[in-house]
Design a protein around this nucleic acid. Structure first.
Lengths: 231, 231
DNA sequence: CTGTGGTAACTTACCCGTGAGTCATATCAA
DNA sequence: TTGATATGACTCACGGGTAAGTTACCACAG
């Protein structure tokens, strides 16, 4: 489509264009079928080119995968950072983070599995590319969780660590549930999250839920007044 | 060790004994390294026998894996059933279920990964062996969650479905955290869970936490009086 | 008590499909 | 001619699965 300035001695598509095109296809393939069950030949066929071209440009399957992961992580983590800088705290920040993730993922849902792929090689370039991002995310989450735990009167180190694990797991479960229900819009899903948090922890408004209007977060609308919260 | 009725023309170890031995080794191997990264040759070597013997006795890698999964699922699900029949309800039942799982897993922690192995074949004998168990577990969990949701005033179908996903995910996260901390005893971990639930949802005694004494569940001992619960 | 046949247990050496990675070569713009 | 894009045809390692043979033990005939 775009010719993008073919260099001297160039036949066919310019390298930069081709690389971008391959990368895009590879992201979808790895993110849809997983690393292990995606062969380089598959990607080449999907991209309408031959296998050696991929090796010419990316060196190895893992090299290509590393770039895909890098790309996906950059997109998703930018969203995490944005949420963490939104000025909200506590459960409100959790909701904001989820909402941002739904919106970021809506046009390219495969990015999720690309980053959290259990069949990805346990060590190597792509893993190391993720490590830095994960460390950053870990501190973000740990901070938020430990803050909430402190407010609730529990300062135990290991309790906080375990609670953090639960939070990350719950986060993934919510995103996973949403990915399994493609007919649900990000807005609807965010509202569902608000309702669920409200159901689990009682009225959120009482807990410093101060999402600023115009932030993209839909108005908080609990499903029901919840006449009998669990606590 | 046991000679187990040697039939005519029998050399070496009797088939039943050998099968049990191989199965045991295979459970550990699959449960430790995962299905995908465990080769039949690995298992044969670990068992001190040759590869064809495994094929003689189990037919295929997947046949062997199916038996391992069946065994592990039977053990773990028996524990689930036991918990569900313990007469507790709500969050107390959650704690009882977790406690039972910690105790069941303590002597053979690899059983966990055997059942929840993301690298296991997505279809085939082992998957079908799990399907029935999973269906049963699903209804157990869904019932408990929907009961709690109803108490909290939320009867939305999809909210319940998503909350169930979160609960299962949280359950796995807690077990996973424990497996990552081998120095923590099941008793300690159960107490940690009680503390965490208490921290998240407020004092549990107020919520029909009626674990019967002598049930094996340690006495409930919240970390701190939690002077300022989240709600 | 001996040898001889039958069978279960077990192994060595192989087949073969799959998929990562490579090499020599072809095409075409400048 | 040169150099960048591009490919058909290949090598190779790995792992699931198999064919054919070997060993040890028991039963029983002589």
């Amino acid at each position: 489509m775009t010719m993008a300035r073919a260099n001297a001695g160039t036949k066919g598509v310019a390298r930069a264009d081709r690389e971008g095109q391959i990368l895009d296809i590879a992201c979808r393939a790895f993110g849809t079928a997983g690393y292990a069950s995606t062969s380089v030949a598959d990607i080449a066929e999907a991209a309408g080119i031959s296998k050696p071209l991929i090796y010419n440009y990316f060196g190895s399957k893992e090299g290509l995968h590393a770039l895909c992961v890098e790309h996906a992580a950059a997109v998703l983590w930018a969203e995490f950072e944005r949420s963490s800088a939104s000025g909200t705290v506590g459960l409100a920040r959790a909701v904001v983070t989820l909402d941002g993730m739904f919106r970021a993922l809506a046009p390219q849902p495969w990015m999720w599995r690309l980053v959290f792929d259990p069949t990805a090689p346990p060590e190597g370039a792509s893993r190391e590319a993720l490590a830095a991002y994960e460390a950053r995310l870990f501190t973000l989450g740990e901070d938020g969780v430990s803050e909430l735990m402190r407010l609730a009167g529990n300062t135990d180190q290991d309790d906080t660590s375990a609670m953090h694990a639960v939070w990350e797991s719950a986060f993934r479960a919510l995103v996973g549930w949403w990915l399994d229900h493609p007919e649900v819009s990000p807005e609807q899903m965010s509202q569902r999250c608000v309702r669920m948090f409200s159901t689990a922890f009682g009225d959120l408004d009482a807990l410093a839920l101060s999402a600023r209007p115009g932030d993209g977060l839909p108005e908080l609308a609990p499903h029901q007044p919840a006449p009998a919260p669990p606590h």
